[in-house]
Amino acid sequence: MSGLVAAVVLFAALLHASWNAIVKSGKDIFLSTVLVSVSAACISLAALPFLAAPSPASWPYLSASAVVQLAYYSLLAAAYKTGDMSHTYPLMRGSAPLLVALASWPLIGERLSPMQMGAVGCICAGIFGLYFAARLPATASAPSSTGRATAFALGNAVVIASYTLIDGIGVRLSGAPAAYTMWIFVLNGAGLLLWTAMRRPADLLAYAKTRWPLAAFGGFGSLASYGLALWAMTQAPVAAIAALRETSILFAIAIAALFLREKISRRRYLAIVLIAAGAVLMRAG
């Protein structure tokens, strides 16, 4: 993995943590999720006419990814509605690279080096350390994690691993990584908008009036984050990119502490050191 690819993936991780914080900070988390998705779709629609179309061979993967990611957005909203970002984000993002690494070899024939396998384990161990730190709050007033939030987050980890593998194959077949990415967001945004317009049209319009500037930034961050990650998957092994991208937890923890005012204990900081060490190992491998 070149230095440029590693830097791009880390920037994508920062963008990902940022748009998740926008969703989490909303008064109505599901509607925030919808607005972010629709904003990303609008940006994509504006750019698609200037891009080459994805190869027909990639469209089955594109369609499958769009369906799977509708489940992702639904579980994301449910997880943030029932739990803190510092609890649910590590579980969602931390479990996925391990699942991707285990599935990459039998599905697409990619093997990680021993050092990269160690990096995957190190990153996952650090993120699960954050999970256990959340279960042991530093103060009596700190909220403990809920079973429902944990279930939603772990379920979403399976979804994340699924679409990571689907898109890792699809983007390589597409011959047009940018257009492939933008079609995903167009299909996702259209599906979420249609469902919400049928169920909560008045709520959506009223919420959009006050939330659209942040939603627009979140949509850009969501689109750019995933697009950069997919581009990186054309330059390096899918599992390696998936693991390094999970360093978004470093940015998420900082955002949760500084902007969402969540408490960060020493146990959580120790877990963050493990994640940083894993990122260094992944770069060296």
Rank of each mutant, 00 (worst) to 15 (best):
F128G: 03
V159E: 03
R93Q: 01
R199G: 09
G175R: 07
S44Y: 01
I253F: 02
V23Q: 10
R245Y: 13
S222A: 14
A134W: 00
S18Q: 07
A57L: 14
G147T: 09
D203L: 14
Y89H: 08
G221S: 04
W183A: 03
V9W: 04
R93F: 07
I184H: 05
S44I: 09
F11I: 10
V280T: 11
T234W: 11
G94F: 06
S174F: 11
M198K: 05
L244D: 10
G278Y: 01
A66C: 09
A276V: 14
W19E: 12
A46Y: 08
C124H: 08
T164H: 12
V158H: 08
G227D: 06
H87D: 07
G26P: 06
L274I: 03
R135I: 07
G168A: 13
D203T: 13
A140T: 10
I241P: 00
M198E: 01
F185P: 01
V68H: 13
A52P: 10
I160N: 12
W19R: 10
R261M: 06
L14Y: 06
V280E: 01
S37Q: 12
A256C: 08
V120P: 03
L193H: 03
L45I: 15
L130H: 14
A40P: 00
P60L: 11
A96I: 08
Y163K: 07
S18L: 05
G168H: 10
A197F: 14
S86M: 04
A142F: 10
W105I: 08
I22K: 03
L165M: 15
T146Q: 15
A7D: 00
A78C: 07
L130R: 07
V68E: 07
K209C: 08
L4K: 09
A240S: 15
G189K: 04
A176Q: 14
I249N: 13
L194A: 13
E110Y: 05
A153F: 02
S265I: 03
